[in-house]
């Protein structure tokens, strides 16, 4: 039996609800995007229902530690097709067992969630480290990213707490939405970019007059801090995988 859901978190939670309603035996959960009809497998399309989803979420909150709940959410943000099924099986497993089952690392779904969450948390941490703001002409600090996973929801509070006295935008180019902090609150936005604009590095004319100077000083600093006698490129690349270099002011040639 295949359950098909719309890819949203409430959708996934509704699927768990439906399973307990119907008890159809073994089920695999797939998102509609990934679903290809198979000749012999029966399928059931889950209709997302906020009230049902809420009940499942409240149930999970009761049964899981805070850390496990976080792993659950992060696994969802991974957007990895197999992760959805693991989340589904994990929920079923949790509701069938007494509280505490989420620390059974011998269970494949518990372990799978731990792994997904680890990758997502790593990506979150990398974004918090590698995002580079550029100050625009009107004083806004702008950064664009294209992270492997959908991490904007979990980096928001970090940037809000830290950069409380400056307006900023972090834009996910891959998922085409971003966060804007207006000195009070953070809201989700989309940007209509003008034709031909460099979304990564807008033209100098659009930027604050000192932006180029500070970028240069930072590059200089990065060079000075290096100790040639200790050069270790392998380790360097291990810490800063090449796909992140495009973010880094210190790695981009002017």
């Amino acid at each position: 039996m295949i359950y098909i859901f719309d890819g949203s978190l409430p959708g996934l939670l509704t699927a768990v609800f439906e399973w307990f309603e119907r008890k159809p035996g073994k089920v695999v959960l797939k998102s509609i995007e990934m679903f290809q009809p198979e000749a012999f497998a029966e399928s059931f399309t889950v209709i997302t229902d906020a009230a049902k989803a809420d009940r499942v979420w409240t149930g999970l909150q009761k049964k899981l530690t805070k850390a496990s709940l976080r792993k659950f959410y992060c696994s969802y943000l991974s957007e990895i097709p197999e992760a959805y099924n693991h989340l589904f099986q994990f929920s079923v497993y949790i509701f069938k067992h007494a509280a505490g089952a989420d620390s059974n690392y011998g269970n494949e779904h518990v372990m799978a969630l731990a792994k997904y969450a680890k990758s997502v948390e790593r990506e979150k941490h990398r974004m918090e480290a590698f995002i580079r703001f550029q100050k625009t002409g009107d004083g806004l600090f702008y950064a664009s990213i294209d992270p492997d996973f959908n991490v904007l929801p979990i980096i928001s509070s970090h940037f809000k707490n830290r950069y409380a006295d400056q307006q900023w935008v972090i834009y996910d180019l891959k998922r085409k939405y971003g966060l804007h902090y207006n000195l009070e609150t953070v809201s989700e936005i989309t940007i209509g970019f003008a034709e031909g604009i460099n979304k990564q590095k807008p033209a100098p004319g659009l930027m604050d007059e000192n932006e180029a100077l500070y970028a240069t000083l930072w590059k200089d600093y990065f060079k000075s801090a290096n100790i040639v006698a200790r050069k270790n490129t392998k380790l360097h690349v291990q810490h800063v995988p090449k796909r992140y270099w495009k973010y880094l002011t210190e790695k981009i040639d002017v």
């Binding site: 918090e128 830290r162 290096n226 100790i227 270790n232 360097h236 800063v240």
Partner: peptide, 23 residues
């Protein structure tokens, strides 16, 4: 950052980049 200023401490600190010797 409780005076709405700039910055705060991150529990474990953040490495914003690494030198070419991997530090």
């Amino acid at each position: 950052n409780d005076n709405k200023g700039l910055g705060n401490s991150h529990v474990s600190g953040i490495c914003h980049t690494y030198t070419e010797d991997g530090r």
